[in-house]
Design a protein around this nucleic acid. Structure first.
Lengths: 230, 230
DNA sequence: CGTGGCGTTGACCGGGATCAAGTAGAGTGG
DNA sequence: CCACTCTACTTGATCCCGGTCAACGCCACG
């Protein structure tokens, strides 16, 4: 791995907002920060996993490959959120990959220290548990969507999730710079299909474009696409 | 809810195998056992969630609906395993449904007590965390499969998972009684397609049938179907 | 000016969903 | 014991969504 950079974050504890203050020195002692470039692969599925990461600054995509040139983006992680956490109890091999979407800094904690912390710091373990439960709910919804929802609905839901997670710029555009390819991988569809679907949505007045930025112009209709009408 | 039944399980603690002995009386005091019939709905997505379940005996399927008559089976739970655990940190509404596949007994613990236990019983919280991490890994793999893997591979993987989870009868058949409809919902495909695929697999000598029971006659070839050949 | 990457669009096609219809039990009531 | 429903299994025919492939335009960059 590249060499660590030093940043001043004595006040910021990852994930656990109400984590015990006395822990911070220990955490800092065991935490390494790495600068990542845009598009840089942080870790790759299949490679040995010895630790857990947090996003200090920037945006990271967590994804899983299929074949040579297909992938599914599982989630995006922004400032303060953990990733690579599925190494816990695993076989020491990352089951997923992580790539930086923006230049930024990621923090690394080795598994042994992380697990030790969990066993002692109840609040942290509890918060992580809640986080995992939420992740599971999201995963399960996404599974069902991939199995049954048409692409149009999945794109709609992807955009809504991006809006919820990253918010809007002052102009009302979803505040993330995302390639069409990544949007496609996040929706679980191909580049071309997503392209066509977005055009449809613009025709129908649900979306507006400005360059590659996307704005939601009719949230209610977009939301309706994500429901099982039955 | 129906009335609770009394069963003698003073020695058995759910999930957490190495959970502290002193807790057992408290757990028993807060645990209710319910007898369920084959096919009985235990809880339904959208209904208020006040607690967490464990399978005492029997088999339970955890599933999520789409529209009126489609569903995706997320997982099966057998003896000793928790389900409904995603209520943790949720909005008090079940996001999934659970249905008994076999007559059996399920145990119920209300959320408040469960969360209190988590906060105090570190081992239990830690074990649950590991369990969640594993569930996440499985979910993520399943998501990718639904997005990219063809139905044949998904059926193959479903059968392998069933074999791993439920084992084999002395005759070498997968030891679970499962309707074709459920197998289809577990694979994320339709009844008819799964039917055809299974026939193919039999033709190719990978599977053998006996009534509704399925035996894997060529595990290696079946496993190969679940790989991304690239 | 070429050239390579990405956005854009059309044409095609195939996996799998859908529809429909026939068959085989398993009760159930007469 | 037989007719009759009901549900699950089986199979063929058809359709269409969305993946694949290919071509073209555009712009940046060497």
């Amino acid at each position: 791995m590249k060499k660590a950079v030093v940043i001043d974050d004595a006040e910021s504890c990852f994930l656990c907002k109400n984590c015990i203050k006395e822990w911070i020195p220990a955490i800092l002692a065991h935490k390494k920060n790495y600068k990542v470039k845009k598009g840089e692969l942080i870790f790759k599925e299949g490679s040995p996993a010895n630790g857990i990461f947090f996003v200090h600054t920037g945006i990271v995509k967590v994804h899983k490959r299929w074949g040579a040139d297909k992938e599914l983006i599982l989630r995006f992680a922004k400032e303060g959120v953990i990733f690579g956490h599925r190494v816990l109890g695993g076989n020491g091999i990352y089951a997923i990959s992580a790539t930086a979407l923006q230049p930024g800094i990621v923090s690394y904690v080795d598994t042994a220290f992380f697990e030790a912390t969990l066993k002692v710091n109840t609040d942290f373990a509890y918060n992580l548990l809640m986080f995992f439960a939420e992740e599971l709910r999201v995963s399960e919804r996404k599974m069902r969507n991939l199995a049954h929802m048409p692409v149009k609905g999945r794109v709609a839901e992807a955009l809504i999730m991006l809006k919820d997670q990253f918010g809007l710029t002052k102009d009302g555009f979803i505040d993330i710079e995302l390639s069409r390819q990544d949007l496609a991988s996040f929706s679980g569809a191909t580049y071309e299909t997503v392209f066509r679907v977005i055009n449809e949505l613009i025709q129908e007045g649900l979306l507006t474009l400005s360059g590659k930025s996307i704005a939601i112009s009719n949230y209610d209709k977009l939301l309706k696409l994500t429901e099982d009408i039955a």
